[in-house]
Structures are given as C-alpha cells and as structure tokens.
Amino acid sequence: MRSWLRHHRMAFNSAARKLAAQKSAAFASVLAIGIAISLPLAGYILLEPLRGLLGRVALEPQLTVFMKQSAKRDDADALGRTLRGDVRIGSARLIAKEAALKELASVEGMADVVSVLAINPLPDAYVVRARDTAPESMERLASELQALPGVERVHADSLWARRLASIAAIGRVALMILSTLLGFGLIAVTFNTIRLQILTLRDEIEVSKLLGATDGYIRRPYYYLGVLQGAIGGAIALIIVLTGTYIMNLEVGVLADSYGSSFRLPFPPLADAVSVIVYAGLLGWLGAHLSVSRHLRDIEPS
C-alpha cells in the first residue's frame, strides 16, 4: 500500500513537473480549456434566474376568472359553487381581492405603489384548472365562463409562461449542445497535449519499458497531467465567469435599481463551482486516457 501510494505521489509530481516545464504551451492549453468551459458556465449563470422564475409560475393550462369590481363576497361564493359543480372543471381556487393586493405589495418595487392606493383596485378571482386541457376545450370553457353572472373577464394566463418555458428549454438544449461540443474540445486539447508529451519523452518511455516499467507506471503521470490540466482549466473558467458576473452586475445593478429591484446575476454556488473543476478534471482524464491508449502502444523497445 505504501509503495502504491509512493508511486502515485511520484506520478503526480512528475505530471506537475511536466506541466511546469512546458510553461507557455501549458498556459495556452489551460487557458484554451478555461475559455471553452467558461462559455457554457456563463450560459448557465444567465439561465439560472429564468429557471427560478419558471419554478414559481404554473405551466399547466389554467384559466383565471376575474369578477366584476362591484361583486360582493356572496357573489364570489356563488360563482365558486357553480364552478365546482361543473364536471369539466378539476379545481377552482379563490384568490380574494385582499390576498391579491397583499401579494402585489410583496413584489419588489410595488410596495410603495400599493401603499398610496386609496382603494383596492383588484377584483376577486378564481384560478380554474380544467380537466380537458386541449386548446379548443379551454377556449370553449373560457367563453362559457365569461357569460356567468358577476364575471368581468376570463384570461388564459398560462400561455406566456408556456412560451417562456419553451424559450428556457431551447436555451437549455443550446447550452447542453454547447457544453457537449466544448467538452469534446477539452478532450481534444488534452489528447493533443499528452500526444506531444509522449512524442517528446519517447526515448524515456522506451528505456523505461526496456528496464521493466509496467504500462500502468508509464501511463500514470499522463493521467495526472490530463486531470491537472482539466482541473486548472476549470478553475480558470470559474475565475473568468466570477469576474465577468461581478463586472456585469455593476451595470445590471444600476438597471435593476432603476426598477426598484435588487436583482443581480447569481454567482454559482460552491457545490456547482467544485463540480465544474471536478468535471473538467474528469474530461482531462478521459482525453489523457484516449491519447495514452492510442500512442503508448506505438512505442515498443527495439
């Protein structure tokens, strides 16, 4: 066990020395990896607020039935009974005008507006979930509910949320494709770095094989080199994104403040930051594995 650990320590030190010895070439490689990883990471930072928003809104088709401003609570209760008695309706939830005003006041920047209102301008409303959510059925139901006594307006308010969700989904898919492509890019960069290392150290590898080095012993430093290169690239990506987010937030803050909002682009949480470094290291390992498997078998003692 002690011998095994010693061999790994030696391999790690050897990889670190190889990386340090390359200087500008190594820096260029890890910088390329860092920039490549920073692109999907920046996309993630930009999409994260959208994900939070979508988490708060309902995406299932639903109708909001607004009552007339003049409607009394008894009218609302009567409408509730009618809605719940309709077999086409799965549920009907009352949002009382007082509760609606309270919710509006809790929205950033609206508290001041609400506080100056002399009367509550909001009506009582029902959020209705239909059993049949086909667009035609929803449309027919909406027009029928519109005709009920005390109803001012019926709004199919899920549409915008569904569109937003679709845009977010497109963004996520684009981000996934970009991440995959740049992941391959990272593997290719590592593959090439290791290939050049193997070519440079061809004599040493050949002599080591002649003297009794196992394949594992010869491969190990290259695996560590791949992991180190990937992980350092991941760390550079984080630095780029954190710096970029900080700089962006200086301007985002000015814009958000003008709307009375404290919105800022989020920094990646610690767990995500660590994951970026770990995944980059794993991709580096994969690039090293492919390169070592491809090129070491070509070097045999003669």
Binding site: D203, E206, V207, K209, L210, L211, G212, A213, D215
Partner: peptide, 21 residues
C-alpha cells in the same frame, strides 16, 4: 505482455547504444 516488465527487472541489459537519458 503484462508479465514482461517483471521478467525484464530480473535481467540487466547493457545496450550497444547504451540508451542513457
């Protein structure tokens, strides 16, 4: 092939071109 390294460790070889690093 996996057994060769262990055999080679028990055989000292001085090559014609020495193969020094």
């Amino acid at each position: 092939a996996s057994a060769l390294p262990y055999l080679r460790r028990s055989i000292g070889v001085v090559f014609q071109d020495q193969k020094l690093l």
